[in-house]
Design a protein around this nucleic acid. Structure first.
Length: 857
RNA sequence: GCCCUUGUGGCGGAAUUGGUAGACGCGACGGAUUCAAAAUCCGUUUCCUUCACGGGAGUGGCGGUUCGAGUCCGCCCAAGGGCACCA
């Protein structure tokens, strides 16, 4: 009589194994002198918002599979965890709930750490830190001073994006559709003195190095390349008809010098110094400038694309023809921040210029025509394609590309202009008018200017006694904190009250994890050993912001001697989002547990009858209430089930839809694996020679193909495909009838290997099974299996036979059979004969080991 | 507007280099077990046609290359994403 196991109860085992791993210090990374090769796997660290969500579960489940898999493969694995702990929500909580941001943050960290631990992640918790720890941000301040000395930092007045709700400055990258990325409020333009990191100095490098990031998604590299936005062109000078306030000429940047003969006017930005100067004595122009400043930021205005201009009355001399004078306009579509803030316009070959020219009745001169249209002329749609130069004097007949080169060369030869490369990327403004961030270690003195805080005075700590009862920066309002003596002259001075953009904090945390040194941000031996991160995993939403900043910051750290590498992340994987159906009725959105699904739709769970509208599948979000809480899932099904479901079905880079059926399916699988242990022959057998009996041999072979396939899939992060192979093996084991001792041994062997293969994904169940089999120690510490490749190739193979490209039959042939034998066998197969009877065989294609195709007429 | 990605059963999705389309999971249907249910086990499940054997069609659409196309090429359609007055 077989003993029936009780259903697998995760609650009974999961905590137990988590303790066992802890006690054995399984996941502590060994020091750099360890003889194993290193592997650094990192998931983007979380913001301590209070609770983990399913997105975290997916992200950390994937990282954990990689970490456990690499450890089993014999790597010295570093898999740390920390907290991106500065930021606005802590201050909002302080305002709303009257709690201190530090307390709110550290309480959240405690809660979330406990949640993460319940997932059974193989994390080296000894390396944990939060970016709001003074022991972290103090080093960040020191590095800022290093950057300052190295010329990587600027302080300058500039027009900034001002978020009126959050009352702080935003970087360009943080403005989405003209709105603050956090508050969603329309961004205003404001002039402030700001600290900048000179990321644009690295624009060329950051762009060029993208080519070397072979293990990054093409999509992310492309997005970064577009963001950096390199363009090549000509900068040249247009002399003005009059000198205004010392300005006698316009410097103009163009990527289309080939269209110079099609010039029709010049245009300058409303913020151009010439426009500013002219507006001083011209009220109409001043009003126009004000209007542009107002309209400039509104998304709707940009969408409408209405071109507005103001004729200055000045003219500019064409650089290729001294007798040609172009009117100079102030135009709303010319940006001061790009190029020189002044353009020459060629309406025939630029749609914006054409819109403007048509509105203000300016000439349209076609200078490029398509190759096969001799009488081509632009009317209402600019021509930007390739073709042949016309109406361009000495350049007629050339291609635009050739004309561009010749014209630039001519300008350079005559000293009238030069080839120039421009970037879209601007310097990174890092000043934020917030309390809960890293204080900028600078003292502002009326006599000495901006003076660095002496190194021995670091870290500049945030004051603890702050009040949030009025808007703006609590540091600036603090009665005493900012008042200090100037380190240079000793006179009364004030601290910089701005703090760093929190993206600074997340730009080097991966380096800090390599060693928590007291006296320096990084320790050479450790940081150079571990970096680059071998596999970084996180959301696509950081494709530009965080990933570009971190790449720049690593270069800055390289330049200031903090580390050896230039690229922080050798491999990047961007995972998809976790989505769920949405539910609503006339009172608003409903959470999944308020809803009961029926055959035809859904009803309220409370009464079982009130209809509920089932909406689109969307990213889980508080606002739509389509959230499933990881804690509830773990309590009900255990961490392994949650992890398994997150890894099954959907490819990891794509969005996954959370469903009740899906989690139930994963739960059934856990139970099915557990039932494999009901058999009496469930004993530990780690090594076995290929069995003789056909069924056992077949099972043995399937174990080998599964080992081979799962290894390959995990290598390429194909978790969903690895899952499918494991389902197959479990199904085979469950259906296997063990008759002989040999069969039973083979089954036990298969079960032992299965535990190893499952361990990265379902570590607790694998550990429980391993212990039940009588395995040595922990499966978490055991080596990854090698496939016995000798059984992967069988003697007989099945070949499909196609006739005219359609499959008609299958033949079983010896692996060693040559083409003549295969042809013979194919032609004598009954299913084939039927189709070739009375027809001519004009061609026979035999692809060894693959296919036979007969072409008949 | 520019750039990119993706289109495969009722659903999520498989398919090394062009070589048996639909693995695996979900759902559905039928059966076994059960007093009944849950759980479990067995079977069916791309569509059309046929009592059946079988046959035909089929990877968003149209065309092309090839003995052979989900895969390569061209054009088109749809959905999603990024950038967006960047000269």
């Amino acid at each position: 009589m077989s003993v029936t196991l009780r259903p697998y109860d995760p609650a009974q085992y999961e905590a137990q194994w988590q303790k066992a791993w802890d006690k054995a210090a399984c996941f502590a990374a060994a020091p750099p002198d360890d003889k194993r090769p290193k592997y650094y796997v990192l998931e983007m660290f979380p913001y301590p918002s209070g609770r983990i969500h399913m997105g975290h579960v997916r992200n950390y489940a994937m990282g954990d599979v990689v970490a456990r898999f690499k450890k089993a493969q014999g790597f010295n694995v570093l898999h740390p965890m920390g907290w991106d702990a500065f930021g606005m929500p802590a201050e909002n909580a302080a305002m709303e709930k009257k709690t201190h941001p530090a307390k709110w943050t550290y309480d959240n960290i405690d809660a979330m750490r406990a949640q993460l631990k319940k997932l059974g992640l193989s994390i080296d918790w000894a390396r944990e830190f939060a970016t709001c720890d003074p022991s972290y941000y103090g080093h960040e301040q020191a590095m800022f001073l290093d950057f300052l000395e190295a010329g990587l930092v600027d302080r300058r007045e500039s027009i900034v994006n001002w978020d009126p709700v959050d009352q702080t400055v935003l970087a360009n990258e943080q403005v989405i559709d003209g709105k603050g990325w956090r508050s969603g409020a329309p961004v205003e333009q404001k002039k402030l003195t700001q600290w900048f990191l000179r990321i644009s100095d690295f624009a060329d490098e950051l762009l060029a190095a993208l080519d070397g990031l072979e293990r990054w998604p093409e999509k992310v590299r492309l997005m970064q390349a577009n963001w950096i936005g390199r363009s090549e062109g000509l900068e040249c000078r247009f002399e003005l008809s009059h000198t205004v306030g010392g300005i006698s000429a316009l410097d103009v940047y163009t990527t289309r010098p080939d269209t110079l003969y099609g010039a029709s006017f010049c245009a300058i930005s409303p913020d151009h110094p010439l426009a500013v100067k002219l507006a001083e004595d011209n009220a109409e122009l001043a009003a126009f400038r004000a209007e542009c400043a107002q309209r400039g930021t509104s998304e709707a205005d940009i969408e409408a694309g209405e071109k507005l201009g103001f004729d200055t009355g000045l003219t500019a001399q064409h650089p290729l023809d001294p007798d040609w004078h172009l009117p100079v306009y102030v135009a709303n579509f010319v940006l001061m921040g790009y190029g020189t803030g002044a353009i020459f316009a060629c309406p025939a070959h630029d749609q914006r210029d054409l819109d403007f020219a048509l509105k203000y009745d300016l000439p349209v001169n076609t200078v490029v025509r398509p190759k096969d249209e001799a009488d081509f002329a632009v009317t209402d749609s600019a021509y930007t394609g390739d073709g042949v130069m016309v109406n361009s004097g000495p350049f007629d007949g050339l291609s635009p590309q050739a004309a561009r080169e010749k014209i630039i060369a001519q300008f350079e030869a005559r000293g009238h202009g030069q080839r120039r490369v421009n970037f879209r990327l601007r310097d990174w403004g890092i000043s934020r008018q917030r309390y809960w961030g890293c204080p900028i270690p600078i003292i502002l003195c009326d006599a000495c200017g901006a003076v660095p805080v002496p190194r021995e005075d670091l870290p500049v700590r945030l004051p603890e006694d702050v009040s949030f009862d009025r808007p703006g920066n609590p540091l600036a309002h603090h009665p005493t904190w900012k008042k200090v003596a100037c380190p240079t002259c000793g006179g009364a001075a004030t601290r910089e009250t701005d703090t760093f953009d929190t993206f600074v904090d997340s730009s080097w945390y991966f380096a800090r994890f390599t060693e928590l040194a007291d006296d320096a941000p990084t320790r050479t031996a450790a940081v150079n050993h571990w970096l680059p991160v071998d596999q970084y995993i996180g959301g696509i939403e950081h494709a530009i912001l965080h990933l570009l900043y971190a790449r720049f910051y690593t270069r800055a750290m390289h330049k200031t001697g903090h580390l050896a590498v230039e690229e922080p992340f050798a491999g990047l994987f961007t995972q998809g989002m976790v989505c769920h159906e949405t539910y609503r009725n006339d009172r608003g959105w409903l959470a999944p547990d308020e809803v009961e699904k029926t055959a035809t739709g859904a009803v309220l769970a409370a009464d079982g009858k009130t209809p509920v509208t089932v909406g689109a599948v969307e990213k889980m979000s508080k606002s739509k209430k389509n959230i499933v809480d990881p804690d509830d899932i773990i309590a009900r099904y255990g961490a392994d089930t949650a992890r398994w479901f997150m890894l099954s079905d959907s490819p990891p880079e794509r969005d996954v839809q959370w469903t009740q059926d899906g989690i139930e399916g994963a739960w059934r699988f856990v139970q099915k694996v557990w039932r494999l242990f009901e058999a009496e022959d469930a004993t530990f057998i780690d090594a076995l020679a290929a069995p003789e009996s056909p069924p056992a041999h077949a099972l043995y072979a399937q174990v080998q193909t599964t080992i081979e396939a799962v290894t390959r899939e995990l290598e390429s992060l194909g978790f969903n495909r690895a899952v499918a192979r494991l389902y197959e093996l479990v199904n085979a084991l469950a259906g296997f009838q063990a008759e002989s001792a040999e069969d039973k041994n083979c089954r036990a062997y298969g079960l032992t290997q299965l535990m190893k293969l499952l361990a990265p994904m379902m570590p607790h169940l694998a550990e429980t099974g391993w212990a039940r089999l009588g395995g040595d120690g922990l499966v978490a510490n055991s080596a990854w299996p090698d496939a016995d490749k000798s059984v992967l190739v069988s003697d007989e193979i099945v070949l499909p036979v196609q006739i005219n490209g359609k499959k008609r039959a299958e033949i079983s042939v010896p692996k060693t059979a040559d083409a003549a034998i295969i042809e013979d066998m194919a032609l004598s197969e009954a299913g084939v004969k039927k189709f070739i009877d009375g027809k001519d065989i004009s061609k026979v294609i035999i692809v060894p080991g693959r296919i036979v195709n007969l072409v008949v007429k």
